[in-house]
């Protein structure tokens, strides 16, 4: 049999732990929208209250064969394979930015389909492999 003191401390701790789990859960629930680092094009499409003067981030994949680079700007389409947003951007892009790869664009929405970015971040996936293997894989895919 455990001493009474130990039991008391154990139950105290259990209540304390339960309360703090609940507290953290409530905080995270309230912050839910703000924890998201970026919105997907679908989020933008369904959201009702868009502030066009506030900076937001949009993330997704750079749609294949849509990347246009000319002297003044870079244009591409961000897609989440359901909805799309056209993005234009002036500035330097990170090394890992490429068609078919993940991207996060920071800037302002002009309307629901057009986004003017002032910063581009590359979002890379969790796959790591040597270049030789990648070549073999892409050869096989052809």
């Amino acid at each position: 049999m455990l001493p009474k003191k130990v039991k008391k401390r154990a139950s105290l701790l259990a209540i304390f732990l339960l309360a703090s789990v609940l507290g953290v859960f409530l905080i995270l629930n309230t912050l839910n929208k703000n924890i998201l680092y970026f919105n997907s094009p679908t989020d933008i499409k369904i959201s009702q209250d868009i502030n066009y003067n506030k900076k937001i981030r949009i993330g997704g994949m750079v749609k294949k064969n849509t990347l246009e680079i000319n002297n003044e700007e870079i244009k591409f389409i961000i897609t989440d394979f359901k909805n799309e947003i056209s993005v234009s951007f002036k500035g330097t892009i990170p090394n890992l930015f490429a068609e078919g790869k993940g991207v996060v664009a920071e800037g302002m929405l002009k309307d629901k389909r057009f986004f003017e970015a002032d910063r581009i971040l590359a979002k890379h996936d969790e796959n790591y492999m040597p270049p030789e293997l990648k070549n073999i894989l892409s050869d096989n895919a052809k």
């Binding site: 997907s40 979002k123 996936d125 969790e126």
Partner: peptide
């Protein structure tokens, strides 16, 4: 949705790291 990529090494299932 985070900028950080998901885990490459999973406790169960295959890892996406060579």
């Amino acid at each position: 949705a985070t900028l950080h990529q998901p885990a490459s090494i999973k406790i169960s299932g295959t890892s996406s790291i060579h």
